[in-house]
Every structure is written in structure tokens, then in C-alpha cells.
Simulated assay, not measured.
Amino acid sequence: MPDSVALPVVSIVALCYNHARFLPAALDSILAQSYPRLEVILVDNASTDGSLAVMRQYAQANPTWQLVEQPRNLGLCAAFNQAYRLSSGEFLIDFATDDVLLPQRVTQQVAAFQQLPPHYGMVYSDAELIDEDSRHVRFHFRRTPQGLHPRPASGYVFADVLRRYFISTPTMMMRRATLDELGGYDETLYYEDFDFWVRAARNWAFYFLDEITTQKRVHPQAMSRRAYRPGDPHLTSTIQTCRKALRLCQTPDEWVALAVRLRWEMRQAIRWGSNADAAILYELLRQTGQPQPLDWLLGQWSHLRAKAS
């Protein structure tokens, strides 16, 4: 890698809400990075478990680190945006402080960006999933004789991110220009990744780096596992993102890809009894021009169940 003065600054936004148990491992993994030009912004999003005291200790021991103490929980998207607007790095990492960065993470991803054209807005990679006791669970991508599963995609991947889930969110390094064009995360949403993928992939290319760069912590009560229950804001945010995707689609393949997503989301909503949301998802599916006979039946059933409840 070139002389450190010539290297781009990478901003790590370390966002914490009640991660006291995991914070030392997370913050030590920042200190262990081989990359020399890091800007670190710690954000405590009104934790109630002693996380703030840990973050203050690390900020005091590392005077170049900034610490943002939120008096109330702003939600993930707004808390990240506040730090992003304070940052100066050419590239950014949205780092949840229950995860762990492997020592070569930043070095490997910056090297990848430096080999890519400037229209690449994000580099992502493989991750090791670990449990709450830091024991190996599995890797994000399963390696088979036919290749990686789920199949990673590189280049212009707008249809891919509509159709299926394949990106490990904690492994993302984002180009600042991409976030600037988007205005950061959408602060009206409960979660950020699907919306970022959809909006960024419309105009920017993504690149898959075939390295394990991150340990992603999996929890028994993860937010995504409650995502389809009635009234859960995760599903509301998914619907908002699908509405955006509907406006952004331009080709027949993209309409088909969005229909695949909407069909799957609708059936999950029905499975967990979120019938009003399922009816909304069917209406969006109808607007793609791709509904199938079974979709119509499920849409009508959801609408009737929603009216009866």
C-alpha cells in the first residue's frame, strides 16, 4: 500500500445502543486495524446499560476519537447521519458495536476501491457469524462446488438487490460521494440497509470482495426475526422502500425482480398475520404488472382479513 499520507481517510462510525457487553471487543478491533488513516466517531444512542461509560474510557484513551452522546435515542438512521455529517473520510463504515472488524478489514477494502473505477459506490465482503459468546456459527456465504451461496453480485446490481438478499450489511464500506448523493440514510425508516441498497444501486456499482473481513454478532432476539409481526416498524420501512423501488424501476427485468421481492414480502406478512400490510404489498405487486393468479387470491384474502380485524 502507498505511503500513509497519500492514503484516503476512512471514517468509522461506531454506533452503540446497549452494547456494553460487546463494546471492548468491538472498539479493540478498531485499534487493531492495520490501516493508518482512520477517523473514528463513537456514537452512544442513549444507552441504558453502561455503554456510555465504556465509550468515554476509550475516547479518553484515544484523543483523536470523537464521542457523540445522544441524550435520547434517535433511531439508527438519524444517529448514523449525525456522525456522517461530522465526518470527513472519503469512505465510511457503519459499524455496529456488537460486531468485530478483522485487522485487515479497512486495508483490504480500500485496496479494492483503489482498483475500481469511481462509479463504484460500495465494497462488501464475506462475514463470519458469531454468537453472543463469540463462538463461530457459520459464514455468511456458504461455499459449494457450484460457488458461493447466496450468489454475490458485482457491478450494477439494482435488479439483484430487489430480487434477493445477498449482501452482509456489516461488511459494507461506502464511498462518501454515494452517501452525499443520497443525502445519507432515510431518517423516516426503522432500518437502513435495504433502502441504501435500492437507492445507491440505481446509479452506483457495488463490488464483492471475496474475503472474510468482519465478525457479525447474531442474537436470539434480532430485530429482523420480529420483522413481520403486526405493527412492527421493520415491515413498514420495507414497504416504504418498495414504494421507492417501484418509482426507480426502468426495465422489464427490474419490474420482474421487484415483483419477486413483493411476492415474498407479502407471503411473509400473511404468514405472521400482518394482513393490512400484506394487502398494501399486493397493491404494489399489482402495479409492477407482474401479479400471478395466486397473488390475486392472496391479495383479496389479505384485504378481507384486514377489514374484518
Rank of each mutant, 00 (worst) to 15 (best):
M1F: 12
L7A: 07
V9D: 00
S11I: 03
S11F: 03
L15C: 01
L15Q: 02
Y17R: 11
H19G: 15
Q33Y: 02
Y35A: 13
Y35V: 07
R37P: 05
V40R: 01
V40L: 01
D44R: 06
D44G: 12
A46I: 04
S47I: 12
S47Y: 09
T48C: 13
D49C: 04
V54F: 05
Q60D: 09
Q60K: 13
Q60I: 11
Q66C: 14
L67F: 03
L67I: 01
V68S: 03
V68C: 04
E69A: 07
E69S: 09
Q70I: 05
Q70V: 01
R72Q: 14
L74F: 14
G75F: 05
L76V: 12
A79C: 08
A79H: 04
A79L: 07
N81F: 09
Y84R: 10
L86Y: 10
S87V: 02
D94T: 09
F95N: 00
D98S: 14
D99E: 07
P103F: 05
P103S: 12
Q104C: 11
Q104L: 15
R105I: 10
Q108C: 09
Q109C: 13
V110L: 07
A112R: 11
Q114K: 11
Q115M: 12
Q115C: 05
L116E: 03
H119G: 06
Y124V: 03
Y124Q: 05
Y124C: 07
S125Q: 07
S125R: 05
I130T: 09
S134Q: 14
R135V: 09
R138W: 10
R138E: 15
F139P: 09
R142M: 15
R143L: 15
P145V: 10
P152T: 02
F158N: 03
D160N: 14
R163A: 15
R163M: 04
S168L: 01
T169A: 11
T169V: 15
P170D: 01
M172P: 00
M174G: 02
R176I: 01
A177V: 03
A177G: 07
L179M: 10
L179A: 02
E181W: 02
G183Q: 07
G183L: 13
E192T: 12
E192V: 09
D195W: 08
V198A: 08
A200Y: 03
L209N: 08
D210R: 11
E211F: 11
E211D: 14
T214Y: 13
Q215M: 14
R217K: 08
A222M: 11
A222C: 08
S224L: 07
Y228C: 05
R229D: 13
R229M: 11
G231Q: 06
L235C: 13
L235W: 02
T236C: 00
I239D: 04
T241K: 06
T241A: 06
K244P: 02
Q250I: 02
T251H: 12
W255V: 05
A257N: 05
A257R: 06
L258F: 06
L262C: 11
W264H: 13
E265W: 06
R267W: 08
A269C: 12
I270Y: 00
W272N: 03
N275A: 13
A276Y: 13
A276V: 10
D277G: 13
I280Y: 06
I280M: 12
E283Q: 14
Q287N: 11
T288Y: 10
G289Y: 07
Q292W: 05
P293F: 04
G299A: 07
S302K: 02
H303I: 02
R305D: 04
S309R: 14
